[in-house]
Write a protein that binds this DNA or RNA. Structure first.
Lengths: 135, 135
DNA sequence: TGTACTGTAATATTTATAATTACAGTAAAG
DNA sequence: CTTTACTGTAATTATAAATATTACAGTACA
């Protein structure tokens, strides 16, 4: 996987710490140690998934869309997931081989089961509990 | 993640289908649709983890090291895993920020829990059951 | 002694990820 | 009504990771 889950959780933790104050993408980028445009892109995604809200214009910024105990990490995961947990081959296996012909489907089925287990587990983690660890 | 889990499972499935006959890396590469050197590298790793055995020299090749019902996909996963399930940021977060200073450790702890859940789940998948799907 | 393999390292290529730049749009404040 | 400080988003460039390729030494059988 890539770093998107980390960045999203980092953003949400900072927004939680701000307790409703609007926070700028510049500030967030400073703590994450990356650049504001990338953070805004991730914020855009989080907003699309209903986890944060934003305000444009001068004195604008970002805040959580709901209370931190309602932000489950399963939601965050769903918001950023893009690749299979068990990975994915770049090349199509050989369709002339009985194994090659079917293996992708079988691996995909298995991946689905694993992902369900992950999401079920992540359902028990929420932002409120996570934030508490920092104090 | 990358394609290593796929390749390893593909290899093992083909070796299982060969029922003890030695199989060459060339043949494996043909079904997987990649090149033999890469397959041998993966075979080397699987051997290191006790899942296959190899024979050098002319008429050499590869076969399973144990019966397919004893090859759990949790073992395969352990053999190829390298990155965190929840990903990892490239940059160190800002140590001057209370959140940035601690977040990596907290994310790592969470990742550990998720990974344990994945492995527990993968423990129920074995090569024998997987191979059956192909007939 | 030739042949058909494995084992492994070094290098090149491709793809994925992240960083940067740029600028239009918006709203507050003077 | 203009400046200022933000967001939103796209386009481009840079960097890192993954995979492919090449090469060749080592091994065992015939």
């Amino acid at each position: 996987m890539n770093g998107r889950f980390h960045i999203s959780v980092h953003i949400l933790t900072l927004l939680d710490a701000a307790k409703g104050e609007l926070v700028s993408s510049d500030y967030l980028a400073g703590s994450i140690n990356t650049n504001p445009a990338l953070v805004r892109k991730e914020l855009s995604n989080l907003r699309k998934h209903g986890l944060i809200i934003s305000k444009e214009g001068k004195a604008g910024g970002y805040m959580l869309a709901k209370s931190p105990d309602q932000i489950r990490f399963a939601d965050v995961y769903e918001a950023v997931k893009q690749t299979a947990i068990l990975g994915q081959a770049r090349n199509e296996p050989n369709p002339k081989c009985p194994v090659g012909r079917q293996i992708n489907q079988h691996l995909k089925d298995m991946d689905k089961e694993i992902e369900d287990a992950v999401i079920k587990k992540l359902y028990d983690f929420n932002l409120a509990d996570f934030s508490e660890k920092f104090y």
